[in-house]
């Protein structure tokens, strides 16, 4: 390469205006054995750059893989959460079983009222029946009284027996 050209490149280089290609040209030029004495300085610079570029990192890096939580482990955690949630909500449902009238739809309410009426009718007739049973109760009371009197009778009979024996 023409020396003139190199000198121009050097000037550009000093001003930080060279492209990477031009710098490569300079490096190639200065890797040759002999350079003009006034460019000796650049020779050592460029050779140093090339030489240090060869240096390598040789030490090993201990790459320990951190314990990574696999998908399965997270799934098990999620499953436990779901089960707990399930139990909890079931519990809640049992707790809130008693519903108020306000919870029912109009149709359900109508059915409910109907059923209530039927049951009321039934129960009132049932009570009528019990009134009649009261009479039976009274009979049984009188009957008990009768048995009490019978006790007297048996006493009388036992005394008469005694009298008969003594005679």
């Amino acid at each position: 390469m023409v020396l003139n050209n190199i000198e121009k490149l050097i000037e550009k280089y000093d001003n930080g205006e060279t492209t990477l290609q031009e710098e490569q040209q300079l490096k190639d030029y200065f890797s040759q054995e002999t350079v003009p004495p006034h460019l000796e300085v650049y020779k050592s610079m460029f050779q140093y750059f090339l030489y240090t570029h060869e240096e390598q990192f040789t030490k090993d890096v201990p790459l320990k893989s951190k314990k990574t939580y696999s998908l399965y482990q997270w799934i098990s955690v999620a499953a436990v959460a779901v089960i707990m949630l399930g139990i909890f909500t079931q519990f809640e449902i049992f707790q809130t079983q008693p519903q108020t009238l306000a919870d029912l739809t109009p149709q359900e309410r109508a059915e409910y009222e109907e059923a209530k009426e039927v049951l009321a009718l039934f129960s009132s007739n049932f009570n009528n029946g019990t009134d009649k049973l009261m009479a039976l109760n009274m009979v049984s009371d009188n009957f008990d009284k009768g048995t009490d009197n019978m006790a007297y009778l048996s006493e009388v009979s036992s005394t008469t027996n005694k009298i008969l024996k003594t005679n």
Binding site: G16, V41, S44, M45
Partner: peptide, 21 residues
């Protein structure tokens, strides 16, 4: 800014080297 800084670095490197030479 990089170019300016680079130019300064190169020049001062060269000057100091010339001195030692």
């Amino acid at each position: 800014a990089i170019r300016v800084s680079l130019s300064r670095a190169r020049k001062s490197l060269r000057e100091k080297l010339t001195k030692t030479h």
